[in-house]
Design a protein around this nucleic acid. Sequence first.
RNA 1: GGCCUGUUGGUGAAGCGGUUAACACACAUGCCUUUCACGCAUGGAUUCAUGGGUUCAAAUCCCGUACAGGUCACCA
Length: 546
Amino acid sequence: MTREEYADLLVKNEHDYKYYEDKYPKRDLPEGAIVSRYAPSPTGYVHLGALYTSFISRKMSKQTNGVCFLRIEDTDQKRTIENGVERIIEDLAKFNINFDEGVTLDGDKGNYGPYMQSKRGDIYKAFIKKLIIEDKAYPCFCTEEELKHDHDRQALNKERLGYYGIWARCRRLSMDEVISKINNGEKYIIRLKSKGNFNHHFKFKDEIKGKMEFPENDQDIVILKSDDLPTYHLAHAVDDHLMGTTHVIRGDEWLSSIPVHVQLFEMLGFETPKYAHISPICIEEDGKKRKLSKRKDPEAAISYYHEKGIPYGALMLFLETIANSNFEMWMLQNKDANPDEFKLDFKKMPIGGTLFDHEKLISISKNYISKLKAIEVYDMALNHALEYDKDFALLLEKYKDYSVSIFNIEREQKKPRKDIANFSEIKSQVWYMYDELYKPVNYEWQKINSKDDIKEVLNTYLKYYNPDDDKNSWFDHMKEAAVSLNYAGDMKEYKVNPDKYKGSIADFSTVIRVSLTSKCNTPDLYEIMRLFGKDRVINRINEVIK
RNA sequence: GGCCUGUUGGUGAAGCGGUUAACACACAUGCCUUUCACGCAUGGAUUCAUGGGUUCAAAUCCCGUACAGGUCACCA
């Protein structure tokens, strides 16, 4: 029996590997163009780490005029969940992450498909067959029990774990022995026949982490499983070769399989791609740092930010800040520039894990929202309310123009207010602007000067109040009213001689502010009063006086 | 346990043999100011996990130690 016949006996497939090499020619792209991919398993929702990785992959290829495709790694049929793929595509699209090629909601797009690994079985087998013919792979008949037994012995003797060297029993099986086992109906899988020597180190350069050394792989890893699908390792090598990936951008939990992957590329006769291993986003627990966990940490889920009402754009700015810390500086220096113009650099990506900094996210979100137009803030607030606070949504819809005006206070100017961090809190910031929500039970009088006679202040102010005032005359009237009660109209003057006065213009206007809104911290009082209109101002003041 | 990687103020970090050890967030104080916010200014690491070594010179290079993270499946 020739090796070809032997390989045919072991692996059943349709096309020869050369057929596939011809079918997927090299990509014709400009110098320096990065072909990358995002390759998730369809196991559930997209979490923050996955969003981060896909974002970097997406942006790196875009900024080099390359290609970024979506490949679905579903070779583990047990783990795949229903609608998992749709979920991934839809989640990423919300963050403006779309792919040039790959799996889409309407099927495959691009010339290097199929992009779903479960549909590429024949391709993998063609290359596995090639390895068998070249005596670089062999069938293994070991049962689960046998493997466990060896594993336990290795552990007991404190030897290196795994299927290698003397432990790789099936490696020594002759062709005839294999044939007779198969004729007996014995089940088998295919393993790589590793020629690596664990005591030999080789140099490796990661695009992000830099130079490092690894021992050669000497494990005879499984490449074809009993379900007739390949393992991740083999699928990775074959796919990224055939699909023309130049940069494998993935989480750094893969770093330790570099020896296997490099070896696989060499044994298959492929050119190895560049690798960029992204360090994880971490969280602190009991004073220790650990990778953000999809299961344990609510902030790992993207829906968490949706519920909080943190804009998607703000989250992306946060991720970009983590990815390249000089991005922040760039934003500061290019205030009006589109973040897309910023070029991400592998060399500036963090090497160790980055702690998830909630405060920073909030700060970025505040800045982001402060730059939005009032109508955009309104739309976002409404969308959030529609999903999480129906009553508030009704109010926003009923008083649309009024609400937009509220969001426009101290907005759309050079130094806008930065007090909205997210849309889940917005109601608690503007509630007093709506009579339907306003229940002035807890006036914040505590900050007020005890010498103030609230009723006297209010009655006096009412005499000076003119709803038609512009901002300057409004404040002039405020001052006149204050001065008539021996409050200082000028802050500097007051600071020099505080004892000469009952209080300052600040004390005076705070009484007005609290009686109108029940709070001492609000945006510009003039704007608020203007939006209230005469009747509401007088009603609220009278409410306090009585 | 083996193999890889990391450790710079409260946090994220820049730094790549000679710097007053950037910057951002947070915090504090002051200025501005009708409150808050914004903005501006100032303050905080005598020191870069730790012990050695190389060097005229080390956060930066080398070795050991400690701690932390990742990984060791017919899962990806």
